[in-house]
Each structure stands twice: as structure tokens, then as C-alpha cells.
């Protein structure tokens, strides 16, 4: 009963938040575009046509063609699959690592906690992109490398979040009750604590997808992310920079796609956070 009431409060708060709704709609549309990419794209995204290179947007090619005569719109539609895949796999990896280390630190406390949290502090000292770039230098860049590297170096926020949640949960009565009945640590963590700590993780995961997409596009733009000919919004912008003085459409549209995508996930994530926060409830 209580659970159901909580849920309905959550949904009514979420649906009243206009920005969150816009974000949700953007995210759903992006999913559909990625899912139906083969049917939606007007041209074969890899089809080279040297007779029609760098054509400005026209009726035939609504967003123009690139330096090899490929259709920009079709490449952007296929590119949406890349950013979706990178976003979700990277966030999956960083959430697993973050939840694991955060739970260990928060639940056991003591020296385990100090070691893990100092590790987090140290990792956070490195400037953004630095560790990722250093590793990318030694593996051949690919979409898999990007996903793993973003995941492996991005878990610190989640770990801090989970630790804080667990610290506040572990002294509560229902945990003490479970422990007094002889439940083991692992059972307490996975059955009793984590389910109650998941909502902030969900919010940070949605915001994390946005951040991962931004990172992927930056790395691909620099030429060390997703490699051509696989289309990604980031590496399409590289072509935009190479032809900056003759083909503005190569720079404008892929970036716009990144902006709208990231905006969608951010709005949705913040909307869910507001809807979950009991202090904001009226």
C-alpha cells in the first residue's frame, strides 16, 4: 500500500515537471531513432559518392553531404546508436564498480572505508580526460576501448553517493532487525540496503549517460575514440573542423545532436531527482 502510494506520488510529481517530460520525450525519440536506424536513414550511411562531396543541405540531402559524399543525415541517424551504446555500457561499468566499492566502504567502515575513500580522493585529483587519454595512448582506439575506459575512470561519484546512502541506512531499525535474525553481511547489503539506496544511483546513472556521451564525442572528435568509417557524432565533427571554412553544415548538425541528447538525459535525470526528493514534496 505504502509502496504504491509512494509510486503514484513519484509519477504525479514527475509528470507535473514540464522539463522532465521534455527530457523523457527526447530520450524515447532517440531510442526509437537508434532502434529503427536502418529504416529511417534515407541513404546507406557508408555509401561514398565522389561526384557529390561537401554539398550544402538540399532537398535530396537534407543535412548536406560530407567530404566523401556521404549523406550527413543518414550518418547522424546511425551515429545515435554509437552514443547510446557508449552511454549505457560505460555507465553500466562505472555503476557496478561504484556500487561495489561504495557499499564496501560504507558498510564495513574502518580501514576498508579509509582506503577506498582515499583512493577516490586520489583518482579525483587527476584532471578530467587525463587518465582516459593516458590509457587510450596504449590501446588501439575503438568503441569498446572507449566504453571500458570511461567506465573504469568514472565510478568515483557513484561510490561516494552509495557510501553516504549506506551510512545513513545501516543504523536504521530494519537493518538491525535483519542482523538480529542472523542475516549475513552480503544478504543485508544486497537485499536490504541496496534496494533502498538505488534511487540516487538511478539519477546519477541517467546523468552519467549524458556525461559519457559528451566524453565519447570529445574523444572521437580528437581522433582517439570511435574510428571512422563508423559514424559517431564526435568523429563527424572532426570532418567539420577539417572543412571549417567551406562546410558549416558538417560542424553544425552533429553537434546539435549531441547537445539535444545530453540535454534530454540531463532534464530527465534532474526531473527524476526532484520527483524522488521527499523534502520537495508538497
Amino acid at each position: 500500500m505504502i509502496k504504491q502510494r509512494e509510486k503514484s506520488i513519484f509519477w504525479s510529481r514527475l509528470s507535473r515537471n514540464k522539463l522532465a517530460l521534455i527530457g523523457g520525450v527526447i530520450v524515447i525519440i532517440l531510442f526509437l531513432i537508434a532502434l529503427f536506424a536502418p529504416w529511417l536513414s534515407p541513404y546507406d550511411s557508408g555509401k561514398i559518392d565522389v561526384t557529390r562531396i561537401l554539398e550544402p543541405p538540399s532537398r535530396e540531402h537534407p543535412l548536406g553531404t560530407d567530404e566523401l559524399g556521404r549523406d550527413v543525415l543518414s550518418r547522424m541517424i546511425w551515429g545515435s546508436r554509437i552514443s547510446l551504446a557508449v552511454g549505457f555500457v560505460a555507465v553500466g561499468i562505472l555503476s557496478i564498480i561504484g556500487v561495489l566499492l561504495g557499499s564496501l566502504a560504507g558498510y564495513y567502515g574502518g580501514w576498508i572505508d579509509s582506503v577506498i575513500m582515499r583512493f577516490v580522493d586520489i583518482m579525483l585529483c587527476f584532471p578530467t580526460y587525463f587518465l582516459i587519454l593516458a590509457v587510450i595512448a596504449f590501446v588501439s582506439p575503438s568503441i569498446w576501448a572507449i566504453m571500458i575506459v570511461i567506465g573504469v575512470f568514472g565510478w568515483m561519484g557513484v561510490a561516494r553517493l552509495i557510501r553516504a546512502e549506506i551510512l545513513s541506512l545501516k543504523e536504521r531499525e530494519f537493518i538491525l532487525a535483519a542482523r538480529s535474525q542472523g542475516a549475513r553481511d552480503l544478504r543485508i547489503i544486497f537485499r536490504h540496503i541496496l534496494p533502498n539506496a538505488l534511487s540516487p544511483v538511478l539519477v546519477s546513472a541517467i546523468l552519467g549517460v549524458a556525461a559519457a556521451i559528451l566524453t565519447e564525442s570529445a574523444l572521437s572528435f580528437l581522433g582517439i575514440g570511435v574510428q571512422p568509417p563508423t559514424p559517431s557524432w564526435g568523429n563527424m565533427l572532426t570532418a567539420g573542423k577539417d572543412n571549417i571554412d567551406i562546410a558549416w553544415w558538417l560542424s553544425l548538425y552533429p553537434g546539435l545532436a549531441i547537445l539535444i541528447t545530453v540535454l534530454g538525459y540531463n532534464l530527465l535525470g534532474e526531473g527524476i531527482r526532484d520527483a524522488l526528493d521527499p523534502r520537495l514534496r508538497d
Binding site: L237, I244, S251, G255, V262, N266
Partner: peptide, 21 residues
């Protein structure tokens, strides 16, 4: 919200096109 979502390198490209080119 836009500031949080905009890829910096894309903003740079657009400004280069507008003010430079």
C-alpha cells in the same frame, strides 16, 4: 541547462565559423 549540455569543442567550432570564417 544548455551550458551543461553543450560540447565545448562544438561551441569552439561554431564560434570559429562565426567570428573567424
Amino acid at each position: 541547462f544548455i551550458g551543461f549540455a553543450i560540447p565545448t569543442f562544438w561551441l569552439a567550432l561554431l564560434l570559429m565559423i562565426l567570428f573567424g570564417v
